[in-house]
């Protein structure tokens, strides 16, 4: 059993105007085979949490630590984190003009697995994963995220999740901008991944809607850069009826 452990994590965003602290002491332990939902209002810093785990250069960790199976993550480059078993499904996946999905996926899978998959089995594997997410195989020839609809972008993220098979996956607002059908398809993809792998999942969301399809083991309320309350799946129901106002920081 592995674990992703965040200990008293402080981080700030670096902009031209200076540095602003966003994460103000986040501690969280995610064990393999468990799903944690982090829920919070806009601007609470939950996307920052996702980026900091993945190692986005815009953010600077000022104190605290992250370990994956006991190994320090913060000292690793972005790509080394991914090869160590971390995955971030992004809220806003980036367009990469001129790079086809199939080339991208194969390069990525080769980097993660440490060897190039055999061409014949690879094509089958990729097509199979696409069909499972109800994606047209012609999709593989398009440029990465270029001209994708919101739903296509999110399916593409989950496609990568299933092919890269990480130890821990962070899903950053994977539900945002999806209609009900697309949400169901994406959620089925995540659930299939959870069943097939021993991975731990950190599901970051603003709404409880996705939790009807992806059942979390734990729910954390995230406000003003820290976790203010933790509980079981039923905590989400309380949030649904009562909103985030009860957790608003005293200063607000």
């Amino acid at each position: 059993m592995g674990s992703l452990v965040l200990t008293d994590l402080h981080a700030s965003v670096v902009t031209d105007e200076g540095e602003t602290q966003i994460l103000k002491g986040v501690s969280l332990t995610i064990e393999s085979r468990t799903t944690h939902a982090v829920m919070g209002p806009n601007g609470s810093g939950k996307s920052t949490l996702a980026y900091v785990i993945a190692g986005h250069p815009k953010y600077r960790v000022t104190s605290g630590q992250i370990t994956l199976d006991g190994v320090d993550v913060l000292g690793m480059s972005v790509d080394a984190r991914a090869r160590a078993g971390l995955f971030l499904a992004m809220q806003y996946p980036v367009e990469v003009p001129g790079v086809s999905v199939s080339n991208f996926l194969r390069t990525s899978v080769t980097a993660i697995r440490g060897e190039a998959p055999k061409l014949r089995t690879w094509v089958k594997e990729m097509k199979g994963a696409m069909v499972a997410l109800q994606m047209d195989p012609a999709f593989a020839e398009r440029n990465v995220n270029e001209g994708f609809s919101g739903g296509e972008k999110k399916r593409h993220e989950i496609l990568q999740l299933s092919l890269l098979n990480p130890k821990f996956a962070v899903l950053d607002e994977t539900d945002s901008g999806l209609d009900v059908d697309a949400l169901r398809t994406v959620a089925e993809g995540v659930n299939a991944f959870r069943e097939q792998s021993a991975a731990g999942v950190l599901l970051i969301t603003h709404y409880t809607r996705i939790l009807q399809y992806i059942k979390p083991d734990f729910v954390h309320v995230f406000v003003d850069g820290r976790i203010v309350k933790s509980g079981g799946a039923d905590l989400a129901n309380a949030l649904e009826s009562e909103g985030y106002e009860q957790f608003a920081p005293a200063s607000a």
């Binding site: 986005h56 972005v78 790509d79 991914a82 992004m90 996946p93 990469v96 390069t107 990465v144």
Partner: peptide
């Protein structure tokens, strides 16, 4: 773009080359 590719395990130099190759493609 670099962050996106690197976050999928692709080493920095290879990621840069992919982006430039795509630019010319």
């Amino acid at each position: 773009q670099l962050f996106y590719l690197q976050s999928r395990g692709i080493p920095e130099q290879q990621a840069r080359q992919l982006v430039v190759r795509g630019f010319f493609a």
